[in-house]
Write a protein that binds this DNA or RNA. Structure first.
Lengths: 206, 206
DNA sequence: TAGATTGTTAATCGATTAACAATC
DNA sequence: TAGATTGTTAATCGATTAACAATC
């Protein structure tokens, strides 16, 4: 649908705009401007207008943006106008927390299954899920046609898990393991590592 | 110590280099090159050399980099040559997981205290910690001279918590609440929101 | 209409890459 | 010495900002 090649950096900002718009709606607002949105997300008004203009004309001169309309547009652009099912791999502290995370609701995602390879964890219950045996992972993910997964296993196991996920047809991986993984170019990877974020800030401290 | 103004984007890459170097050491390697490091972290060799050259000359022509030496240098640059104590605010699923996270070990951080404002949580035990009353947070953080904190409360409460942390002398905040917060320029903020990362990838899917 | 704010262009600014002399 | 790889320069590439005509 979006034929034009959009710079990645712009795509990374859209979810931030979206999150703010959803919040504005919750606050009962119905209209905003690039200036107001910019102040709230910490990005210049000019950049917001430029970013949005890559995808269409969503505002009206002199009036600003209808929040509900803009929200819907960005959801479509990001393909979260429907819900994506997620597989979680690894049922340790992180995997368990992520599997039960309530922050996916209304953001376009729903955890559907969770795997672990430790015999004592298999068939244990986490929230509404029963932990499944990693041995059946590839089959189960392919069967359910799941395209999004989160890796919550130790660093040593992350690459092997990634390989299996790719083989199962997964196209987007959010990796909580503190290690870079290699995947085919057709698969997307994002990383969450709190230590990285913290180290980033301590540079400026003291 | 580092007087020269370093572009932020370079600072964000140093922790990634560091993480990879630590891993290499675990694998028993002792020397690497900008090319090898680049392949492993997905960054060009030229960029890695340019980034490092901002801080000094850490390699030898024809030989590459001594991993142990380079690791130590980057740790000093990032000020993680000593351990930073962390306060966690919010003892829900995320706060509990983060307070017990083993991934801070050897990365320069140590969770020291956790707070919540729900009466039924106060004094409950999480790992080795007892949840403290948020009412005493400002005092306790100031008393312990803690400079780094993580916000794990609902979006609605995040700004107020941030205000209190700033008042307590905190200078670096890792915010897990899905909302942008405002702090003085002297305080650093980083964000972790899995939905943002996922939405970022779904743009490219389908 | 007058005021406000968009969408867009041109100018600026900054980051990445390619290439190579220096040197281990 | 010959080969390898750094640190650095210059060229390229891309992103951000400022400004304003268009228009609601």
């Amino acid at each position: 649908m979006n034929k034009k090649l959009i710079p990645e950096i712009i795509v990374t900002r859209l979810p931030v705009y979206l999150r703010c718009l959803q919040r504005m709606l919750q606050e009962g607002k119905s209209v905003t401007s690039s200036q107001e949105l910019g102040e709230r997300v910490g990005i210049s008004a000019a950049q917001i207008r430029k970013d949005l203009s890559q995808f269409g004309e969503f505002g009206k001169q002199g009036r600003g943006y209808q929040i509900e309309f803009l929200r819907k547009q960005i959801e479509e652009i990001l393909h979260i106008d429907h819900e994506w099912e997620i597989a979680v791999v690894g049922a340790g502290d992180i995997g368990s927390a992520v599997a039960q995370y309530r922050g996916f609701i209304d953001r376009g995602f729903k955890v559907k299954m969770i795997f672990d390879n430790k015999p004592e964890k298999i068939n244990q219950q986490i929230g509404v899920f029963y932990i499944q045996d990693s041995a059946n992972m590839k089959e189960a993910i392919r069967e359910a046609d799941i395209k999004v997964a989160m890796i919550c296993v130790p660093a040593e196991a992350a690459q092997e898990v990634a390989n299996q996920l790719v083989a199962a047809g997964v196209k987007a991986i959010l990796n909580y393991a503190p290690i870079n993984i290699s995947v085919p170019k057709s698969v997307r990877v994002q990383y969450i590592d709190p230590s990285i974020h913290l180290q980033n800030m301590t540079y400026y401290l003291e």
